[in-house]
Structure formats: C-alpha cells, structure tokens
Nucleic acid binder design. Structure first.
Length: 568
RNA sequence: GGUGGCGUAGCUCAGUUGGUUAGAGCGUGGGAUUCAUAACCCCAAGGUCGGUGGUUCAAUUCCACCCGCCACCA
C-alpha cells in the first residue's frame, strides 16, 4: 500500500466549466484517484475554485454582485456540477478561504527571509473614475504603430506588436470607458525567480518520470532565463500583503497576484480538508512530517505546465521549507467543439451543468476518457459521442450485463447456478481476461486513459465472445450442467467487468454490483496473480437483473442538442 | 517571429528504436445467431502513413525545407 496525493488544476471561478475543462484535468484526476483507492492505496484528492484576480471582479460587476457574494454563488454552482459528475474530491476548497490567505502570506514572508523578494516601484495606469489601477490589458487605445483603434495595453491585436499601456494614444479604461486616466507610481513585490534558476534546473533534471513534453517546456523556460515577477497587484479582492503578520506598510490597498496565491491553494485545500475532517494535512504535504512516502500527482491542461514545473516550484523550494513537490504530472491538450473552440460568449459547446441535464454523468465520463485529448487536441462531436456511447456502453457492456442476468434469472431462478465444471473454453477465457487485466492495470498506472478505456472495452467484448460460443441458451436444452457453467462464468464476468469499470463509470458499476449483491469489501481491484476470478460468486448466491444500464442516444436527441448547442 | 506538439483508412485514434501483406474502434457491405437494449459474434472492403527533397540495400518510421492545425513564449 502506498500513498497518493492527487490534485487537479483549479477551475477558475468566473462561470461553470465546459466539457473541455473537465476532460483536461478534473475528470482524469478523478479516474486516477478512484483507481488508486480501489487498489487499496491511501489517497488524498484535492481540488478548489481559483477565485482571485481581475476577471472575477469584472464578472461579479457584470452580474451586479459583490465579488465575495459572486464567488460564494459560483463556488456552489461549480461544486454541484462536480458532485454531479461524481468527482470524488476528498475536499473541494476555495482559494479565497482563510487557510490560503495564511499560507500565501506565510510563503511570501519565508521567501522574503530567503532574500527572494524585492520591493520595486513602477509606473502604471490609474483610472480616476474607476478608482483603481488598470491591468495592462484593461487599458484600450489607439496603437502608436498601426493606428488600430482598439489596441490593448499589452499588445495590439491588429499588428501584433507588444505595447506598454503608456504608449497608447487616446487611452481609455476598458472597464468603464473613462478617459480620465493618469500614470502613477506604484510599488510591488517582485519574486526573484532568477536566483532560483539552478535549483529548479537541478530538480527538473532529476524529475525523470515526467512526460517528455513537460520537461521540454520546463527547460525552455529555464534556458530563456527565469524573469523576476511581480507577485502583487493594486486590487482589493485577494490575499492581503503582510509583513511579520501585520499589514505591510504601503501595501494596504494591494493584494497578491492570483498566479501567486492560486497554486498555494493546492496545499491550503489540504488544510481545509483537515479542518473539515480532523485529518492531518501536513502528513501529506510536509516531507518532515510524514509525506516522504507520498507520491504527488498533478493533472493539468497543457497551458499550465510551465506554472507547475517552474513557477510554483520556485515558490515552494524558495521557502526553504520541506514541502512536497510534484512527482508525476499528466498534461492534456484541449477538447474542441467540432474542431473549433468552446466558447461561452458564443454559446458554442456544452457546459458541465447542461450536460448533466441531458444525460447521466457516466455517459460523459466514458466518452471524454475514451477520447481523452492525450496526444493532441480531440474533437468533440455529438455524432461521435452518440456512436461511441451507444456502442461501448449500451451495446457491449450494458447488453452483456442484461443478456446474462436475464437468462440466469429465467432459467436458474436468479441464483448463481451450481453444477458442471469449467473446461478448455473457460480456461482460455481466464487466460485472456488475466492478460487484459494486466494491461488495463498498467495503463491506469501509466495514466494512459484512452488505452485503459480501450482495454476495458476489449474485456467486455471477451465476455460477449465467450457467451456466443458457450451459448448456455442452446446447451440448456440438452446439457443443463454445461449451461450452468456458462451462466456462472457469465455472472462472474459481470461482477468483474463492473469492478474494473468503477473508475470510469462509477454509477453504472455500482448499479451492477448492487444488483449482484456484491459486498463493498469485494469490489476492490484485482491483484496481479489473482486466480479464480471467473468463479468467485458462491453457488446459490442470489441476484436481481438490473434495469437497462444505458439507454441509447437517439438520432432525435442528437438533432435536438445540435439545435440547442449550435453544433456543427 | 521563436520554441514545442500534431498531421496515418469516411470518422476518432494506435503504431513503427528503419525491414516481409501498416493496426483498433466506429461507420459501410456480407454471414451466423436469437439469451439480450433490432443488441451480440464472425468475415470483408477501405489508406501513395500532410507535401517536396535527402541519407540508406531499404523510410510511413531518420534529416532538411514547405504547408496546415494547436499551445506556450516574445
């Protein structure tokens, strides 16, 4: 038994996430967490909403809400959607909660003590009417190079040139449209990442288990040289800046930059979990307090790799304290909607809450993992979704469960039949099943989700192939004992298939295992070398054929959804 | 613009440390079956492995350049 700390990239607070966000971090993290638990390992699976930053403030303003109230509401919405998708977080926290404030301040003070923080003054655009400093991209104006009238303060979308907001002609606030702007001096804390360059490089050198892509991204950043980075902003919503536990002089109206405090929430979510459950979070996060044997696995989208391999490690390692660093990481590409981007504003694509209104979570979970965007972006289309789900879940798995439990119920009184003895056919099946379970287990351990799903499907097919040949419905007429072997083996396969399906389709698996009256203690992952998997159910063990597991998606459904979501 | 990833059957993707007939699922066509959600099972057709050059006895697999898509950085 080992210990696994698993985190998913934190969903940002400004609105419910779409299926692409789900497929790229939260869902695979959940599948992996479930798999490790089933193997008997100890797992702490953490996630949280990332709530600070200007986009949250603007979204709140647009909704006509106070930012705190907005985040409270959005957090609950996202949490409900995560529950609906059966994401089995041990804790789903909030970066705006107290533990993260305390830890963020703690890290900053430790970094300062280590000589990695410097206060610098810079010039920034201040909007008098908005009563606030404006982030670069919230200043709009005319490009000094190409005269494009809607250039952003950081870059001109027309000519592509990088800009400084003070260069813009006729600058205005993107927030209010006000032109009453001034350039003012403002002080900020800078994290001296450059000083950590060699320590980070040595750590990346040693991180040989990372995917090639992750290491090359990290090396690219290191090769270009780490840049000292401002970690505070002139905002009110966020973590206050402190010094020796008190408000830092001159920083009373500033907060930490969201990119600094957000990853710290991974740790703080552990502290929140401890508060809620009485658990010991430091045992998971501090190598001096029991976390030495923990394997830390992170799931994220490809855009986030640099922050997880370089920026956040600078914070953690720079503190000089023995915090747990990532051991294994899994990065995903994007799921696209008919080859294009999901878009909230244009109502393109399906979002988590809407998806659950259409179909149970298992349908989405299966499709998104069987087609996970592992090697490149993966296109989501309703047609492909319909075909995959109908074929894999309804026809191959669901129908297998249905055909054998119904036959067993009608001919053998809904009890696991006695009589007969397994022969060559069953021996061959046992061998094939064992080989595929070995492969399936390896793919889960390697976090190869597409391959794991394909392997699981292949196992289900083995069951159908077996029944086709054993044909207990034919044997029943002439050789009841042989029919009994077929039914008994088939029922054991049902239980086994459901056990193996739990990480991907937990609800359906539970329905099947409940229908077969399989005790909770007997639902764990098979171990290498387990034998007799096809004859574990006691003779006479009663079961109830479950209702149809997966209803098929009809063409009319697809047509209606296409209309609804603007597909194609 | 720089860096990295990707481009393989109608669709979604494996794979090839260079080597006889390039794989899977879906979709399509045919067959078998009736326990089952008109499901399952078997068989078949389908690809000049993005393009152009190069290295090699041999390249889809290595190299160069080009085209297209994606991401990050500037």
């Amino acid at each position: 038994m080992a210990r696994f700390l698993i985190t998913s990239a934190l969903p940002y607070i400004n609105g419910i996430k779409h299926l692409g966000n789900l497929a790229g971090s939260m869902l695979p993290a959940d599948v992996h967490a479930r798999f490790r638990r089933l193997q008997g390992h100890e797992v702490l699976f953490l996630c949280a909403t990332d709530e600070h930053g200007t986009p949250a403030e603007l979204a709140a303003a647009e909704a006509g809400q106070d930012v705190r109230a907005y985040c409270d509401e959005q957090h609950l919405i996202q949490r409900a959607a995560c529950d609906g998708f059966r994401l089995s977080f041990d804790h789903f926290g909030r970066s705006s909660n107290a533990p993260n404030h305390a830890l963020t301040q703690h890290f900053c003070e430790k970094l300062e003590a280590a000589g990695l923080i410097e206060e610098r003054t810079s010039k920034q655009v201040y909007s008098v009417d908005d009563g606030r400093f404006l982030p670069d991209r919230y200043v709009e104006g005319t490009c000094p190079h190409c005269a494009f009238e809607r250039a952003r303060g950081d870059q001109c979308d027309n000519c592509g040139r990088l800009l400084d907001p003070t260069e813009l002609k006729n600058p205005r606030s993107k927030i209010s449209g006000s032109t009453n702007l001034e350039v003012r001096d403002t002080a900020h804390l800078f994290l001296l990442q450059g000083k950590m360059q060699e320590r980070i490089r040595a750590w990346v050198d040693a991180s040989t288990e990372w995917p090639h892509l992750a290491r090359s991204i990290a090396y690219k950043w290191l090769d270009e040289g780490l840049i000292d980075r401002a970690i505070t902003r002139d905002l009110s919503w966020g973590v206050k800046v402190t010094q020796e536990g008190r408000p830092r002089p001159g920083f009373e109206n500033k907060v930490f930059y969201v990119w600094f405090d957000a990853p710290i929430e991974y740790i703080a979510a552990g502290a929140e979990w401890a508060e809620a459950t009485g658990g010991n979070w430091e045992r998971w996060w501090r190598t001096d307090k029991g976390a030495n044997d923990v394997t830390y696995v992170q799931f994220m989208g490809k855009d986030n790799v640099a922050f997880h391999t370089v920026s956040f490690p600078v914070t953690i390692m720079g503190s000089g304290e023995p915090w747990k660093l990532v051991d294994r990481l899994k990065a995903f590409n994007w799921v696209t909607w008919y080859g294009g981007k999901f878009s909230t504003s244009e109502k393109r694509g399906i979002f988590m809450d809407r998806a659950l209104e259409l179909l149970p979570s298992d349908y989405w979970r299966w499709y998104l993992m069987a087609n996970a965007p592992e090697s490149s972006d993966a296109a989501f289309t309703l047609e492909q979704f319909q075909q995959t789900v109908n074929a894999d879940l309804a026809n191959v798995f669901g129908n297998f469960v249905n055909r054998i439990t119904r036959f067993g119920a009608s001919k053998f009184d809904a009890k696991v039949p006695d009589g007969g003895a397994p022969g060559d056919l069953e021996a061959k099946l046992a061998k094939d099943v064992a080989e595929r379970i070995t492969a399936l287990t390896r793919h889960h351990e390697d976090m190869e989700f597409r391959k794991a799903a394909a392997e699981l499907r292949a196992l289900w097919v083995l069951g159908n192939e077996y029944l086709q040949v054993a044909a207990p419905w034919t044997a029943f007429k002439t050789d009841v004992d042989y029919a009994a072997v077929g039914v008994r083996t088939g029922l054991n396969l049902v239980a086994l298939f459901a056990i193996l399906a739990q990480p991907f389709v937990p609800d359906a698996a539970k329905t099947v295992l409940d229908a077969l009256n399989i005790p909770e203690a007997s639902r764990s992952w098979p171990k290498a070398g387990d034998t007799g998997l096809l004859d574990t159910l006691p003779r006479g063990h009663a079961f109830t054929p479950p209702d149809v597991l997966f209803k098929k998606i009809e063409d009319a459904d697809v047509a209606a959804w296409t209309e609804m979501f603007g597909g194609g």
